[in-house]
């Protein structure tokens, strides 16, 4: 496939076009503060998207990640508050990652262990996680976060002042996105486990025959995605400075999925790149933020995300049809 027909190229092109239009309409569009806003908005979405990318490469789909993230952030906040309110943020983060991994293992048991279809299982756990949280754990908003998390939210990587006196900043949380991308890249491309994820997505039957422990790998994929979901959740809570069991992050699930399929990952498994996913996240964030900046009502956001999902899946599907027809 030539680079021209790749999803990555298309998405990069759309981003570029978006920026040109944005700059033409609003002279302040191309500025460091805008960039910082976009980077900040991409942190949580990006971490979740990287997780979903790994699932898609393995040949599955996960629609439970935002629900999982909310459970992880809320349970962690409660635990830290109740047991060790003075706990530093790194320890709290570890707790969140552990909670997320445990919830991911629930998905893993049903999908890898019992061989159920991933969409149905994660559709089920999407409600299961949330219902469990709100029924058995609690449904009160916690706006007084533990000190460690408050400290974390104040730690800025970049801070600056505009000519007009307004401030801009980028929290250290961004480093976590960078770290997650680097770690996932290393896992996918530099470990045998990662290659096995690609192999399973390419052909599960072949993977079984060659002796890849398919179930174990699938299980680990869901645990990893869960861990990333836990991390994304706690970062989301820290940045928002509130732990909300009914957080609107839940509604971002489709944006996450949109970002990943825009980046060229296919539902059939075996394909997908981190570059593509990050470009997809960038486009989604850009669209969401710009619609507001450009004065387009918020209500059109879901239409835009919907169109992006259709575009992201439609283009490769259409291309596949064309090449198939040509080859046949």
């Amino acid at each position: 496939m030539s680079w021209l027909s790749r999803n990555e190229t298309l998405v990069a092109g759309v981003i570029l076009a978006f920026c040109v239009v944005g700059a033409a309409l609003d002279p302040n569009f191309l500025s460091i503060p805008t960039l910082m806003d976009l980077l900040r908005a991409g942190i949580v979405l990006g971490i979740l998207a990287v997780g979903v990318l790994v699932v898609l490469i393995s040949g599955g789909i996960d629609v439970s990640t935002t629900s999982l993230a909310i459970v992880a952030l809320y349970v962690t906040t409660l635990l830290v508050q109740g047991l060790a309110p003075e706990m530093g943020w790194p320890a709290a983060f570890l707790v969140a990652v552990a909670v997320g991994a445990a919830l991911g293992a629930v998905n893993g048991v049903f999908i890898a262990g019992l061989g159920l279809p991933t969409l149905i299982v994660t559709l089920g756990t999407l409600s299961l996680f949330r219902g469990f949280l709100l029924t058995f754990v609690g449904d009160d908003l916690i706006s007084n976060l533990p000190r460690g998390l408050r400290d974390f939210s104040r730690a800025m990587m970049i801070r600056g002042e505009n000519a007009d006196g307004s401030f801009y900043s980028l929290p250290w949380a961004f480093a976590f996105l960078v770290g997650v991308v680097a770690l996932t890249w290393a896992l996918l491309y530099r470990t045998m486990l990662g290659r096995q994820v690609f192999a399973i997505g390419g052909s599960m039957e072949s993977a079984r025959r060659i002796g890849i422990p398919v179930r174990r790998v699938q299980f680990l994929v869901f645990v990893y995605v869960g861990a990333l979901g836990g991390l994304a959740g706690i970062i989301h809570a820290a940045l928002a400075r509130v732990a909300n069991p009914q957080d609107l992050l839940l509604n971002q699930q489709l944006s996450v999925l949109a970002a990943v399929v825009l980046g060229g990952a296919r539902l059939e498994g075996g394909t997908g790149t981190l570059t593509g996913t990050l470009l997809g996240v960038a486009l989604i964030v850009l669209v969401s933020n710009s619609l507001i900046v450009l004065g387009i009502p918020n209500t059109f956001q879901s239409i835009a995300i919907g169109l992006l999902i259709l575009l992201g899946t439609g283009l490769p599907a259409w291309q596949a049809r064309r090449t198939q027809r040509r080859a046949a």
């Binding site: 192999a199 060659i210 075996g270």
Partner: peptide
Amino acid sequence: SLFPNLSVAENIAFG
């Protein structure tokens, strides 16, 4: 029983 999405080299050496 090959992996269509992986390279020739990786398919040969995977096992």
